[in-house]
Every structure is written in C-alpha cells, then in structure tokens.
C-alpha cells in the first residue's frame, strides 16, 4: 500500500517535471499552442466531469459557462479597465451565477430531458451574446483584449501559468470528490431516491455541482480570452459543448485522470488528423462510434479492465453514470 502511494507520487512528479520542460524541449509554437489549449480543455472537461461524471447530471450546455466567463473577463478588463486577475474572479463569479440559473430550474429534470434543457440553455446564451449588440458587439466580437500580463509574450509563458492552474484545479476537484460533499454527489448519481432517504439535500448538492462546474468553466473562459485576445459568439456553439462532453466520456467519466486524458488526447488527435484533410471529420465520426461501443467506460475504464486482466483479478466495473 505504501509502495503504491510512493509510485503514484513519483509518477506525478515525473509528469510535472516533463510538463515544465515541455515548452523548452518542444520549441515549435504550434505544439505549445496545443498544450495551452489542452490546459484550457482540461479545466472544461474536469469541471463538466463533476456535473456529469460524479453527480450524474447530463449536461450539453457547458460551453455557455465557458462563453459567459470569456465575455465577462473580456468586458471587465476592456470596458472597466480591471486588472486581468480581477477579470478572472469576475468571470468565475458570473459563470457561477449562471450555474445557479441553470441548476435551479432544471432540478426536476432527468436523463434526456435534462440533456435537451441544457442544450437549449447553451443556445440561448449564445443567441443573447450574438444579439446584445451594445454590450457584446454581437457577431463582430471583442478585439484587443488585454493579454494575461505584459511579460506573457510567448506561448511558453502562457503554458507555465496555465498548466499550474490546471493542476491546482484538478487537485482541488480531487479533494472535493473524495470529501463528504463528493460522497453525497456520488450517492445522487447512483440512486437519487436512496440518497434523499439518507438525508442528502438533493437540490442543494445538484445546484452545488452545477455552480462549481460553472465557476471552473468560467475560469477557463477567462484564460481563453486573455490568451487569444479575441472573442466572438462563434467560439461557443453547441458543437463546443459536445466536444467537451466527448472529452469527458472518451477519457472516462467519474475519474480524475479521464477528462485530462480526454482533453489532451482529443486536442492532439484532431490536430494530427488535419493530415486527413476533408476525410478528417468523417473518420472522427466513425472513431467516436467505435470507441463508445467498444469502450463504454472510456479510456480509463478500458485501462482498468486491461490491468485487471493483466493482474488476473476480477473485472471491476467503472461507474457508468446515469
């Protein structure tokens, strides 16, 4: 048991050191860009995982929180001249408010109804961003957004800031899901009625999951705008929500490592598939279907099964969600 823990810590240190060296070893800005996007998507996928994977609430509206965070941070720094860190806090607060706004009215909904409701919520947020001209400049988007900091010139600088943020958030999420609160969330996922009977306040914990998830997605939105320095509603379509969900599920929901693997895996996979040109999305579509049929618990589920085969132990099923 102790050995196991030691190995885990060693692996973690190796990963952290490798990550810190990555922008030095890989000089090409393009791969550094993908790594920065990987960090942002890690935040998005991990936060959606809290809602979907741990609480069992299906959501296809995550890009809305991402968009709200992005616009809040952009507007606060651009119009009110707030410093970037304050913009980030503002983005998290505003996205959290939207988390409550989505979480509360949809408390009664389950399964497919919840998926469609969250989808509609995402579309409405995007349409409001598109049409509220005086605030968002509509389809033109906002340009000239403040960079992260005056010294953040290269993508390596961004990576060195964003990667630790992603690590901290993931560690905090890990603490959360293993706490009393996390156990309550998992109880809701496994059986709502039983959870309620045990005295878990369903409404409170469901809204809490949505809110915490939204706050992190808002942070991701803020990191995104101060990196790209441009934002328009085109960046937050339903397809973006779907992409984040794919990362969670293909990586393995209800696990801490799954969404991270999903985020980096899909960012790099889609980019390397550029070589396939116009066949890219057709092959992506087939891959999604095949992967989901063959690995219903995602990558982490498959890893667990294979390792159980190798260790000659019984198959431990990964939580399958709803």
């Amino acid at each position: 048991m102790k050995n196991n823990r030691l190995i885990k810590i060693l692996v973690l240190i190796v990963i952290l050191v490798a990550a810190a060296l990555y922008p030095i070893v890989v000089q090409r800005g393009y791969y550094q860009h993908l790594a920065v996007m990987g960090c942002i998507y890690t935040l998005l996928a991990s936060s959606l995982n809290l809602i979907v994977g741990y609480t069992g609430q299906l959501s296809l509206g995550h890009a809305a929180f991402y968009g709200v965070g992005a616009y809040t941070s952009a507007l606060l720094t651009l119009r009110l001249g707030w410093p970037v860190w304050a913009g980030m806090l503002g983005a998290m607060v505003m996205a959290g408010v939207f988390g409550v706004l989505l979480g509360t009215p949809t408390l009664r909904l389950k399964g497919s109804y919840l998926v469609i409701a969250t989808l509609g919520f995402g579309e409405i947020v995007r349409l409001v961003l598109l049409n509220w001209m005086s605030l968002t400049r509509g389809p033109m988007g906002l340009t000239g957004i403040t960079r992260l900091a005056p010294w953040a010139v290269t993508k390596a600088h961004y990576f060195w800031v964003y990667f630790p943020i992603a690590v901290i958030v993931v560690v905090l999420l890990n603490q959360l899901v293993n706490s009393r609160t996390g156990r309550a969330l998992k109880a809701i996922r496994e059986d709502q009625v039983a959870a309620e009977v045990m005295g878990i306040n369903l409404a409170f914990y469901k809204v809490l999951a949505f809110t915490v998830g939204a706050v992190i997605a808002g942070l991701a939105g803020s990191l995104y705008v101060h990196y790209v320095t441009f934002v328009s509603p085109d960046s937050f379509p339903v397809a973006e929500s779907i992409q984040i969900l794919v990362m969670v599920i293909v990586g393995g929901m209800g696990t801490i490592a799954g969404p991270i693997i999903g985020a980096f895996g899909i960012v790099f996979l889609l980019e390397t598939m550029r070589a396939l040109a116009e066949y890219r999305m057709v092959i992506y579509g087939i891959t999604l279907f095949v992967v989901i049929v063959l690995m219903p618990d995602g990558f982490m589920g498959a890893v667990r099964r294979v390792s159980s085969i190798l260790l000659q132990r019984g198959v431990r099923h990964a939580p399958a969600g709803d």
Binding site: V290, L294, I309
Partner: peptide, 10 residues
C-alpha cells in the same frame, strides 16, 4: 469476450 474487446479497443 468483453475483456478481449476492451483490450483490442485500448
């Protein structure tokens, strides 16, 4: 069957 499938997929 499921184990082999999972292995192949992985």
């Amino acid at each position: 069957g499921t184990k082999t499938r999972a292995l192949v997929a992985l």
